[in-house]
Computed example of a mutant assay.
Amino acid sequence: MTEHTWYLLKALILGVVEGFTEFIPVSSTAHLLLIGEWIGFDSGDAKVFEVVIQFGSILAVVWIFRHRIWQLIWGTYRRERTEVAFARNLIIAFLPAAIIGALAIQYIKMLFHHPGIFVVTLILGGLIMLWVERKPQFAKFADSGSRSDGGTDKRRSTQALEEISWKQALAVGCAQCIAMVPGTSRSGATIIGGMLAGIERKTATEFSFFLAVPTMLGATVYDLYRHGSALSGEQTSAILIGFVAAFFSALVLVKALLLFIAKHTYRPFAWYRIALGIVVLIWLSLGG
């Protein structure tokens, strides 16, 4: 196997990793950078590879929800009240990260070169997820309408995308800003942020999916605009392979996740984050 072929195979591996981790709250960026480090994949200082292939996963969401997205576009054009409100909420949730990202992207990317930050963000994020899932209104399966202790919760969570208020959308948008810190997880921050804002688990997950589309499209276009001319032919080939791999693996993951959260909480992912954070800590302690 030639060095070039091996490089492209690594890109394929990372594309699959991206697709399987983008929409679960375990931080796809942490997995891409850590696994990339372990297998010796050099994506360059600008980290364009990690950003661009994430949009492959986002396109999988566009495909899966294509009918709902078309309904949103057509309904907004026709000025249907519920669709206009949904579109408004996506814009409100998108703007905080767009503004902060544009102003601080250089400082944010500096954090990508410090693996130690993943120890903190992975473990702390896992602990926060466990805390949120223990709150009475979330200590139940999605759509079950009953608490784990057999009682009823007087606080009703927002059950549908169309019911989300602009204040809840803004809360999700602010939570997404936190996810700019590597290892935090964009999906994790927006889902948990939505749940804390009073949105039901499955609905918060779906809103996170839709919000990912403009967010990652913006990040991809911005990164390619700034660094695209500096990419080598080998890096471009790697991005294309990783992009396609991320798309197909995300198709599988998103459908599986929606089935999973219909009957389970996010606690398994929280424990996984904590375990991974400990593994990274041990690896760094051993001189990794």
Score class of each variant (00 low, 15 high):
2 T>Y: 09
4 H>M: 14
8 L>C: 11
10 K>W: 10
11 A>P: 03
12 L>E: 05
13 I>C: 07
14 L>P: 02
15 G>W: 07
16 V>E: 03
17 V>S: 03
21 T>Y: 06
26 V>S: 09
27 S>K: 06
27 S>Y: 04
28 S>W: 00
29 T>R: 00
30 A>G: 05
32 L>I: 04
33 L>G: 07
34 L>S: 01
37 E>D: 12
37 E>P: 03
42 D>R: 02
43 S>C: 05
44 G>K: 01
49 F>G: 09
50 E>W: 00
51 V>S: 12
51 V>T: 07
53 I>T: 04
54 Q>M: 01
56 G>V: 03
58 I>E: 08
59 L>I: 09
61 V>C: 04
64 I>F: 12
65 F>K: 02
67 H>S: 12
72 L>C: 08
84 V>L: 15
85 A>R: 14
85 A>N: 14
85 A>H: 10
86 F>S: 09
87 A>R: 08
92 I>S: 01
93 A>F: 05
95 L>S: 07
99 I>V: 15
99 I>Y: 06
102 A>K: 07
104 A>M: 15
105 I>S: 11
106 Q>R: 09
109 K>S: 13
111 L>E: 08
112 F>N: 02
112 F>V: 12
115 P>T: 03
118 F>Y: 10
119 V>N: 02
121 T>K: 03
121 T>R: 01
122 L>M: 06
123 I>L: 02
123 I>C: 06
131 W>M: 03
136 P>V: 04
137 Q>S: 11
137 Q>C: 07
139 A>Y: 02
140 K>C: 13
144 S>N: 08
144 S>D: 11
147 R>D: 01
147 R>I: 00
149 D>Y: 15
152 T>H: 14
153 D>T: 10
158 T>C: 11
160 A>R: 09
161 L>Y: 00
163 E>Q: 09
168 Q>G: 07
174 C>F: 11
174 C>Q: 08
178 I>K: 05
178 I>L: 15
181 V>Q: 05
181 V>G: 10
184 T>N: 11
187 S>P: 02
187 S>E: 05
187 S>M: 10
188 G>Y: 11
189 A>W: 07
190 T>L: 13
198 G>H: 14
198 G>Q: 15
200 E>N: 13
202 K>S: 10
208 S>V: 00
209 F>Y: 14
210 F>I: 02
213 V>M: 15
217 L>I: 06
220 T>I: 02
225 Y>T: 14
225 Y>W: 14
228 G>K: 02
230 A>V: 10
234 E>V: 05
235 Q>C: 01
236 T>K: 10
237 S>G: 08
237 S>H: 09
238 A>V: 01
241 I>R: 00
242 G>E: 00
250 A>S: 13
251 L>V: 05
252 V>P: 04
252 V>T: 13
258 L>G: 00
259 L>G: 11
259 L>Q: 15
261 I>V: 09
263 K>R: 13
265 T>Q: 14
270 A>L: 09
270 A>W: 08
270 A>P: 01
282 I>N: 07
283 W>R: 04
285 S>F: 12
288 G>H: 07
